[in-house]
Nucleic acid binder design. Structure first.
Lengths: 342, 342
DNA sequence: CTGGGTAGTGGGAGCGCTCCCAAACTAGCG
DNA sequence: CGCTAGTTTGGGAGCGCTCCCACTACCCAG
């Protein structure tokens, strides 16, 4: 038994028009919310639509109009393993919520190889999406430029440099470093080290800047030996922590630029018999599940990840619509979540 | 400067045909890999495609043919919070990899409200996807049946009951419980408790069954007081653990049906002064990040999550193609990962 | 040499929409 | 009461593809 309509075929716009006793154009206008329709016609069409259970065929729409009602969210897979993974899920959640409200499709694209990257670029060239959301782009990633050259609206999560030309939504990474250090200094820590992310990523450089600003604000002198670069992985955090302890056995606090690295640092601290927070205080970034489950639970700087997803989607939708009310480049605030590690 | 073609317009199949000196039909045949094309024509068309940088317009394809080359992955949002979240990311990863190989789109749909659910059903009715992947369906979820009624190919992750009619890919949850208990018994534990998931979920009942089978296999007598139901959340695990300790202070091991619940149990154990594993051994399920970061690191039963994603996608693609070589209902093995908690 | 294949091909007829132009109506004004 | 200006409407012309039918070559058996 077909749900409705004859022979299982979905009703078409033409059938709606026939039933409402109007022309195709009028039905189309009603569906697309054009103001140039009389109330009488609008009512008749609405009723016909309801009676027939009509749902517009998107393929036909995409072909006739020049839009697809779909947006791609692109995640370079190399990053996916590095970052705390729930990050992406939260971004997705935010994006999805916002797109659902606008009745747009979310197309998820993980790119993990040259081949897939190429395929995706082809895909873009084929005008298959109305816009693109790019997550965790490296400083040397050409993808945003490719997208721009095709003049497809795009919004980044994070930026590649201070003077990012493409629209982006970022969190206040400098502020994150600053507030972490401020907190540590407040608790009387004086020899505060940091474990950074890979310094070819702008986000990592920002957090390091914040760290330095925090030291300055607290009247502490910087010491380059207290800075160790890692790569956002747990193993990297562990190695960096070992190096730091070797170079500066007197350090009494560490600001790790991610929870995952903090977890690695925690291991190294335990291996060398340091207690947290008694001997060394520890602060991370992300406020992820890892932070809550560490022993002791990790003090961490929270980023509004889901919110970033929402905002990204909103900005993108505006770029697509051509109504750029909101600014195209946004930095969202972060917030220190104090637990037992510092 | 346009990338290629005149006036920035993407080249069409018609233009390819003109350039290759053949008809539209022939080009279409080449693109779709029909065998009924001479090598000469094939070569000419291939060259023309390369020269023009032609990429087929999917909307036109979808409209003309009756397929979309897109597959929806549906995640009911209520679950997203409960399950260890990286789970979904791993599923997505597997699905995405497999779909990319088949050059299909992945459409991600989070459903978090009645409204969104309804919208999605409409969407399905509009024949907007070739198939559907459903993750973490509750026993009473009607969605799989809706999909089947629309005769859209579908594959579930997990099943709703023993006699699931829809195609599914599941992991061996009974085996998971069994091997966890076997391990505990092997280490000399005698009073083994379990914290289950919500028993209206088949996965939870399976793990409980496995637990019972494990006890029997080890020659231990079951004791219903050693069974506490929870809901896959940390807080639930904690509460369940407290109840268990109150009822049976003499228990010496716990099998928690998820890592997250194990983490909750861990808290309750610490609160009551129990050491892990000395006083109480603990085993979880999922082998998630949480497990690795617990103190002590949690012994856990690993499910091949990404692999499940891959297999789901593969089965779905076969259902779509109509070539059902592989069985439609698969159960993948699990594996015990021994750490320090048991 | 003929008839009956069989590979290979071209192109008409749509798929269901949006765009847009011209027709049909309305109202307002001199 | 005719004329202009504005509003509302119908429907033709595509969008770029696939499907499929008809047609041409060519081959082989009779």
């Amino acid at each position: 038994m077909a749900v409705n309509g004859r022979q299982g075929g979905r009703p078409t716009l033409e059938e709606v028009a026939a039933r409402a006793g109007v022309g195709r154009g009028t039905v189309s206008r009603v569906i697309n919310g054009s103001p140039r329709v009389s109330d009488r016609a609008k009512a008749a069409v609405s009723r016909a639509i309801a009676e027939l259970g009509y749902v517009p065929n998107r393929a036909a729409r995409a072909l006739a109009g020049a839009r697809t009602d779909a947006v791609a969210l692109v995640i370079p897979e190399t990053e996916a393993r590095l970052f705390a993974e729930p990050y992406f899920l939260d971004i997705i959640r935010g994006v999805s919520a916002e797109l659902a409200d606008a009745d747009k499709q979310l197309l998820l694209t993980l790119i993990r190889s040259r081949k897939e990257r190429q395929r995706f670029e082809q895909y873009l060239a084929a005008q298959r999406v109305d816009g693109v959301l790019l997550v965790s782009v490296h400083a040397d990633d050409p993808l945003p430029d490719v997208v721009r050259e095709l003049s497809i609206p795009a919004v980044l999560n994070g930026r590649r440099s201070e003077s990012e030309p493409v629209a982006y939504v970022d969190s206040d990474n400098v502020g994150a470093g600053r507030s972490a250090v401020a907190h540590l200094a407040e608790r009387g820590r004086r020899r505060i080290a940091t474990i950074t992310g890979p310094l070819d990523m702008y986000v990592a450089r920002c957090r390091l800047d914040g760290y330095r600003q925090g030291l300055a604000a607290a009247g502490l002198v910087g010491d380059e030996r207290l800075v160790a670069a890692a790569d956002f992985t747990e193993e990297g955090g562990r190695r960096a922590m070992r190096d730091l302890l070797e170079r500066c056995p007197d350090l009494d606090a560490v600001f790790a630029a991610s929870d995952v690295m903090a977890a690695g640092a925690r291991v190294a601290l335990r291996e060398t018999g340091r207690r947290v927070p008694d001997d060394v205080a520890l602060v991370g970034v992300d406020d992820s599940a890892v932070a809550r489950h560490m022993d002791p639970p990790l003090t961490s700087v929270r980023q509004p990840i889901e919110e970033m997803g929402r905002v990204m989607a909103r900005v993108l939708l505006q770029e697509i619509a051509g109504t750029e009310a909101e600014p195209r480049q946004l930095v969202l605030p972060t917030e220190l979540v104090v637990r037992d590690s510092a």
